[in-house]
Design a protein around this nucleic acid. Structure first.
Length: 876
RNA sequence: GGGCGAUUAGCUCAGUUGGUUCAGAGCACCUGGUUUACACCCAGGGGGUCGGGAGUUCGAGUCUCUCAUCGCCCACCA
């Protein structure tokens, strides 16, 4: 036999098997007769690098995929990347800026060329990293949200929606990102509480020399955009202001004082400056009162010409600059600290500016209804299901989706303009054909295509369809769609999940996936979100280097219930590495056994029967855990079974004495068990299990763990499992006696059981006595009718045992111990008897519960009897 | 302001339709252990009034109400 190192070394194993799997084409799927199992990856940003969130998400997907593969399904896990319009564009702009190139100096085509190059350079990194994790994606299907198939689909979808009347253009106050200079959807804005100031500024009443009205604002730099001052109609303070006008400080523009019950009486001074261009509520007030809209900000957040003063200055610099100007003319009344909720762009983190602009919107109400129903009636099933509430709430209050973005990196909106007329078509020729109906003489050069691109999610929401060419052909769609499961974080339930469900019903009339498994957020051990700025995000690849991919997978899965946060701790990966090593050493032990021609010892036979039952139990439990997506439970079940039952108990049961061989039957059975064990562990720890699978036996070409068969569930012999619990408890107690009396592990003891029967009549399970003798290191295990005086006694398996020892026995302690046990047993019996004496219980409870209580009563009485006898004896 | 969820051992969490003394797991902790698969280990041990209170029931960690604390989502706050 080849020497096996005492440590498992992942680096010697992982790349070898990943390469083998790929070469064999095990990850690749084509439609066939088998049941399909399809997953589309949540496409990571094309410029992203692997972080803990991806690790979690993809480990889950891989576990599910590998399990399904072992179950004989045709698994198709489609990988890909997202062009991530705004995030990528921001990165490219930054890179160009560092090279001294301004985006504004480039043409659209030039910019896109740079962006494409960037994508070529960085785009594949994250997918390569997924390979290190063991992800069994079908790499021949790698998709990109901006490749030809996906782009055509997005454009087609836009045209479809336009034809169906679901798309419209409107002027509205939108969330504007001044850094990226684009509109954002509501879902892309993150609100947090931030410290700021509330400024009280007084405005002179027009035509009066000393009369003022004081307003409160957090945004003094926008006063030049004021169109009115509003007060509450019932506010007595301002009753005489009716019909008066005020002058905007510094620029002295005259504005009306209006009455609107939007104003809160007790906030600030009770008077509100109305700036329709820069606040959504002010805009509404402006509409009600026919106010002028004066936009004093440019797209990049600097003061515009309309501002008259501080023109060209950044909005925050302008805020600082205007205060001394107001102070100088005595119109800054006071400044108060004020905590305000501030919206920031999810992608650039710059403070979002409400801005009036013309954008494209998707009308969502009609789209939402079937998607809402689908989740309500579990046609799309959420795990955990409490995410349904969140989903329902959002869907019932859904607002229209702003889909245009003022960016270049993305799918350019297929809308063509001829003066005021709009023509939507997949191509300019198509648009021209439409336009010619209205304007027979125009040419293609007269049409101007919309400059904007579509929101990134306009491609993501079609992903389950476009990954199988849904807008192009039916062949793959009919086989793979709907997909089996979607695995994603609950933080994008609205941005992505809800929209995919809507798109699924809109274009396919079917759910896009059957189940949705929501992972939690990965946080550090102090429950802080992983972030670059905190530096608490571990380097994923380094973790794999340190602990092996299997160790990391274990670490991630052992503590991440669906929907719950994963409090990541490197220690968990360490535990995973140790687990790998444990299994590795179990293999070393088994491989080290010489097979000899002897009869199978009775205890081995029992051990094998027991562990087989136990394995069956575990297979059933893991199977049910997978069905319910309780993956961390499955992980821990496997861990406990392998470490405790298999290694600590089973291997010790059958382990031959040092230097001796093992019988053929036991060895063969052990190899078979080991093989089943690595197969059920394979979805969690693919590399180690593949390696062991091959070390266990000679394998023919194509006999690999990854494509073997998951063992069937077999009925479990429960009574055997139960009697083994008794045997184990006796062994445990003997070990306890050694530990608490300072005896050596190997010092042979005699174990006596108090009984009128012989010990082999008492323990009829074949091999039980031998097993107890072996694992408890006994010289003998006998029954006796009268126990000797010197030694230690204990109760186990509802019997009284005794170990003769030449020891100073502390009678007092011994009496205390027994008394304690008596009082426990007594309490137990009383509670049982109380139940049984209650007619309501006996009549009301189900038969098996009552029967159980009766058995408990019998056992309890017996036990109490034994204990009382012991007490009497020790006292004598 | 509207909604959702949580509270079980020092920590992180299981506990499936109320029914074995049901209070569990992993980690951490304590005691002992080195030739004989593994110190990335072995054996053993301690530790919880299931957030507080009330109720329903023969029976409540599990169901109802209430209070407290925490977390999250949505809306919005001049």
């Amino acid at each position: 036999m080849k020497e096996i190192s005492s440590k498992y070394v992942p680096s010697e194993v992982e790349d070898k098997w990943y390469g083998h799997w790929k070469k064999k084409g095990y990850f690749h799927s084509e439609p066939d007769q088998r049941e399909p199992y399809s997953i589309v990856i949540p496409p990571p940003n094309v410029t992203g690098i692997l972080h803990m969130g991806h690790m979690l998400n993809n480990t889950v997907q891989d576990m599910l995929a590998r399990k399904a593969r072992l179950d004989g399904k045709n698994v198709c896990w489609v990988p890909g990347t997202d062009h991530a319009s705004i995030a990528t564009e921001a990165k490219v702009v930054k890179m160009l800026r560092e090279q001294g190139i301004k985006k504004s100096d480039l043409s659209r085509d030039e910019f896109l060329e740079y962006a494409m190059k960037w994508k070529e350079k960085y785009g594949g990194i994250i997918l390569k990293q997924l390979e290190k994790l063991g992800a069994s994606c079908d790499w021949e299907r790698t998709a990109f949200t901006m490749d030809k198939i996906r782009s055509e689909s997005v454009i087609q979808a836009f045209c479809d929606l336009y034809e169906r009347g679901t798309l419209y253009r409107d002027y509205r106050i939108v969330n504007w990102d001044p850094e990226a200079q684009t509109v954002l959807s509501n879902e892309e804005v993150i609100y947090t509480e931030e410290n700021g100031s509330l400024y009280h500024i007084k405005y002179k009443i027009e035509g009066s020399s000393d009369e003022y009205i004081t307003i409160a604002t957090t945004r003094p730099e926008t006063i030049m955009g004021d169109s009115a001052i509003a007060v509450h109609p019932d506010d007595p303070k301002y009753a005489e202001m009716k019909g008066k006008r005020a002058l905007v400080p510094i620029i002295n523009r005259s504005i009306p004082i209006i009455f609107d019950d939007y104003v809160e009486l007790d906030f600030g001074s009770g008077a509100l400056k109305v700036t329709p261009a820069h606040d959504i509520n002010d805009y509404e007030i402006g509409k009600r009162h026919n106010l002028e809209t004066i936009d004093v900000l440019n797209a990049n957040g600097t003061i515009s010409e309309a501002g008259e003063i501080l023109v060209g200055m950044d909005r925050f610099k302008a805020r600082k600059a205007i205060l001394p100007m107001l102070e100088e003319i005595g119109q800054l009344v006071k400044t108060k600290d004020y905590v305000k909720s501030v919206g920031r762009s999810e992608r650039t983190n710059s403070i979002v500016e409400p801005r009036l602009s013309l954008q494209w919107y998707v009308e969502m109400k009609a789209l939402a209804q079937p998607a809402l129903d689908a989740v309500e009636n579990d046609e799309v099933t959420f795990f955990p299901k409490n995410q349904k509430n969140l989903y329902r709430h959002w869907m019932e209050n859904i607002r229209d989706w702003c889909v245009s973005r003022q960016l270049w990196w993305g799918h350019r909106i297929p809308a063509y303009y001829y003066n005021e007329d709009v023509y939507v078509a997949a191509t300019s020729e198509g648009a021209l054909a439409k336009a010619k109906k209205d304007h027979p003489n125009i040419t293609i050069d007269d049409l101007k295509q919309d400059e904007d691109v579509l929101d990134t999610w306009c491609s993501s929401w079609l992903w389950p369809i476009t990954c199988f060419q849904g807008f192009h052909s039916r062949e793959e769609m009919d086989y793979y769609y709907p997909t089996s499961v979607l695995v994603t974080g609950w933080d994008i339930i609205f941005l992505w999940v809800a929209r995919m469900i809507m798109a699924g019903y809109e274009w396919e009339g079917k759910r896009p996936f059957k189940d949705v498994y929501f992972t939690g957020m990965v946080k550090d051990e102090k429950r802080r979100k992983m972030s670059k700025s905190l530096g608490n995000s571990p380097d994923a690849l380094k973790l794999i280097d340190d602990f092996g991919a299997d160790g990391v997978r274990f670490g991630i899965m052992s503590s991440s219930p669906a929907g719950g946060d994963l409090l990541f701790d490197k220690k968990l990966c360490e535990q995973g590495r140790n687990f790998s090593n444990k299994i590795w050493n179990a293999l070393r032990l088994v491989k080290g056994w010489e097979e000899i021609d002897v009869a199978q010892p009775a205890e081995n036979k029992l051990a094998i029967f027991w562990i087989s039952q136990k394995l069956n139990e575990i297979i059933a439990s893991v199977e049910s855990d997978f069905k319910q997506y309780r993956l961390s439970e499955a992980t821990m079940t496997l861990y406990n079974f392998i470490w405790n039952d298999f290694c600590s108990w089973y291997l010790e049961m059958i382990k031959p004495p040092y230097g001796e061989g093992i019988d053929l039957k036991s060895l063969q059975s052990t190899v078979e068990l080991f093989e089943k064990m690595v197969i059920i562990l394979h979805p969690l720890m693919p590399f180690l299990t593949e390696e062991i699978y091959h070390l266990l036996k000679e394998r023919s070409d194509g006999d690999d763990c990854i494509i073997s068969s998951y063992p069937n569930i077999i009925a479990v012999d429960k009574s055997l499992l139960k009697s083994m619990v008794g045997i184990q408890s006796i062994i445990g107690k003997v070990r306890d006696v050694r530990a608490s009396n300072g005896l050596k592990q190997k010092e042979e003891l005699t174990l006596l059981v108090e009984s009128e029967q012989d010990v082999d009549q008492l323990y009829k399970t074949e091999g039980a006595i031998e097993m107890i003798e072996k694992l408890a290191f006994l010289a003998a295990f006998k029954s006796t009718q009268s126990l000797p005086h010197d030694g230690v006694s204990f109760m186990a398996d509802n019997r009284k045992f005794f170990i003769p020892l030449e020891l100073e026995i502390n009678i007092e302690e011994e009496i205390d111990k027994i008394k304690k046990e008596i009082s426990y047993a007594d309490g137990f019996l009383k509670s049982v008897e109380k139940k049984l004496s209650n007619d309501n219980f006996v009549n009301g409870a189900p038969d098996h519960v009552v029967a159980n209580e009766k058995k408990k009563q019998v056992d309890g009485i017996e036990r109490l009897k034994i204990l009382n006898e012991s007490l009497k004896k020790i006292k004598s």
